[in-house]
Design a protein around this nucleic acid. Sequence first.
DNA 1: GCGACAG
DNA 2: ATCTTGTCGC
Length: 232
Amino acid sequence: MRQEIPPHWLHPRDIAQARAAQAEMAARIVPRDALPEPPWRIGGADVSNTRFDPRRRVHAALVTLDAAQDVVAQASESRVADFPYVPGYLGFREVPALVAAWTRLHPKPDLLLVDGQGLAHPRGLGLACHLGLVLDVPTIGVAKSLLVGTAEPGPAVGDAAPILWKGARIGTALRTRRGARPLYVSVGHRVSLETAAVLVRAACDGRRLPVPIRAAHDAANAARRAGEAADA
DNA sequence: GCGACAG
DNA sequence: ATCTTGTCGC
């Protein structure tokens, strides 16, 4: 339902304009539950990069799972990234390709688990927030490491600890697998932190990463291999 | 000024 | 993110 997406929200000319765009977007993030009625169809989003690629291509993938955690749809988009990888500005590199893939995903999920930070970001606008706002879809940030803040959850599966930064809580660190580093969950858009943590836990099946994220990761890698094969 | 730094 | 097999441990 999003009508007009300012061009610089997707294609800023430089870091200064990207920073300004993040401030504009951060002010529009809804950190509360604004979801359709459950049960929800959960989706996953991830992007794979071609190593040492002079063309700087990115391969974005989205998947939709049903209540049984089975993949019922997937879509991908391979293209040349028009923005470099800069910590804190990941969205400008990955969101454009993800948006393209989204238009071809059928059926679409009610909510997306995104491989990256949400509000646990230096300016409150991680990849999950960026994507959720542009698509106007509920999103949750699921990161494998911290960009800012600290958190130390207990060793048992299910143990959680707040991610603290500058005296405020910006997310939840979750132990999703024994002996493995925790996962860092934070609000993306239109979901509360409480709901985000509960859903991520429920989406795990014993491995460190939740099923939707793994499925998206696999799909992104498949798209990359296909693209690299079509090359040579 | 120095170090850190999602994917 | 990406390059990669076997191997150690529960």
